[in-house]
């Protein structure tokens, strides 16, 4: 339990998807012009992460990693399918995104229209693929740990995108050197926020 909380805190603040690994920068820069769209996409990312990561965890544990197929028959102990993990993970993510899209369209039409084009694009969102790959690389021991990692990184991404959107809304009123306007200043601000987030380093419960 302690470990699970630790992973959760760590993935929000210290190993933040945006500030420490730059995952999902493209949509982060694209949707962060207003707080409203940023919130919508942040929630969608959190949700898809939370669904795909445990599924990919099970996939990795029972099918892909070295010797994982033992549960089928002991003679498969030497089978290592881990080279297939990229294609399996992206297939899971793409299909889950498709399902999520259809469910939201059917039951929450207002959220569906608010998210618009960003919903299908989540399939190629780096933070989600990155979440699955980190899960595989760090070798989380239980599905609880994997889920808490998913929840933590989703919340971390959400916080980061809402924070930058709020700052960029205010930036409209400030006097920025012309060549730095827009993209340039967003990069620099993200960098400064990243430095600020680094002060959380070393926190553990």
């Amino acid at each position: 339990m302690e470990n699970i909380i630790n992973i959760f805190i760590k993935s929000i603040f210290i190993d933040n998807m945006i500030f420490a690994f730059f995952l999902g920068m493209c949509s982060y820069l694209a949707v962060s012009k207003t707080v409203k769209t940023a919130t919508g996409l942040g929630i969608a990312i959190l949700f898809v992460l939370l669904v795909t990561l445990p599924i990919n965890y099970l996939l990795n544990k029972y099918i892909l990693s070295a010797g994982a197929l033992v549960w089928l028959s002991p003679q498969y102990a030497s089978v290592d399918l881990s080279f297939l993990s990229f294609i399996m993970f992206i297939a899971v993510i793409a299909s889950i995104t498709q399902v999520v899209e259809m469910v939201i369209e059917r039951f929450l039409p207002s959220l569906y229209t608010a998210l618009g084009i960003f919903l299908p694009l989540i399939a190629v969102h780096c933070a989600i693929m990155g979440g699955s790959l980190f899960m595989q690389e760090r070798g989380y021991a239980t599905i609880g740990e994997a889920t808490s990692f998913a929840l933590g990184s989703g919340i971390g991404w959400f916080l980061a995108v809402v924070a930058i959107a709020a700052i960029r809304e205010k930036l409209t009123y400030s006097h920025i050197p012309a060549p730095l306007r827009g993209l340039g200043i967003s990069f620099i601000i993200t960098g400064l926020m990243g430095l600020a987030f680094m002060s959380f380093m070393g926190i553990s419960l």
Partner: peptide, 26 residues
């Protein structure tokens, strides 16, 4: 060496590039 500096360096690269070719300014 810290990760956030990559973003700041890119921001500066963009600044230099847009100062050279002014039509890219937003």
């Amino acid at each position: 060496i810290l990760p956030p500096m990559a973003l700041i360096v890119i921001g500066l690269v963009i600044w230099v590039q847009r100062s050279i070719s002014k039509e890219l300014i937003e």
